[in-house]
Amino acid sequence: MTTTTSPPALTKAPAHPPSPRFSGSGVLRQITVLSGRSLRVLREPAMVLPGVLEPILMLTVFSQVFKSVSQTSSFPPGVSYIDYLLPAFLVTSSISAGLKSGVALTTEMNNGIVSRFKAMPIHTGSVLVGRSIADTMLNVVNLIVMLAAATLVFGYGPEGGVLGSLGAALIAVVLGWSLGWLFMALSAWLRRPESLQPIGGMVNMVLLFASNAFVPADGLPGWLKAVAEVNPMSHAITAARDLALGDPDPGTILATLLCCLVLVVVTVPLAIRSFRRAT
């Protein structure tokens, strides 16, 4: 520095020091505003399209590759493979949706948006509730698109009719919602984006293939069948599938919904607590 820079004079005693401009908002407003923020993606086809196309692509692949499964002896007679497969797809897509909630939260915890919210006079839980609502609504849209595509393109039309399929979708949505909280709790606890995605992806993969999603559990080798039978995903899939195929089992459905509810009751406080602590 070869020039003399004297610090410019500052006004030390202002006539009107600033005071908070707005009076604060209620939890309801916070949740609507924050979920509205996450739902903005719906306005952008470029953001929504991959999420919609991926399951449809998977549906195409699986319905063709595993079609022969419907000729095996363990397969329920008189059921078309697409009718058997789609309810499972509703469930697995919802699990992915739940995982996405966690991943998105981790990303925002790391890029600083969450810190901004946390330094604002709003309830920290609103951030999580807002995300949960938005992601659940996005999942609903996704499942509706899947059902429509399956019906129009692949000739999906199970015994349970429209009501049965909607029931199956509802089970899937509830499952995705509760897993969303589980993954958000994990995300707030782990904090690192690089860990949640692979862990979640791996768990998802194991749960998916060691289940009755694509083939009846009876058709699996003994050890895998044992895993598939205790796999909670199998139960959710069974509940959804029975509904779609017009043969609902109230016990399985209730058990699935109850599990989801318990999961939410346990993970919501955990998620909010870890989230509040994480910086």
């Binding site: 908070p20 604060g24 953001m47 890029n111 600083g112 948006i113 810190s115 901004r116 330094a119």
Partner: peptide
């Protein structure tokens, strides 16, 4: 929190908005 504004390393904005 009602009286502060935070900017910089910690706080960010939403890139998608």
């Amino acid at each position: 929190r009602r009286r502060i504004g935070l900017t910089g390393q910690y706080a960010a904005v939403d890139e998608t908005l």
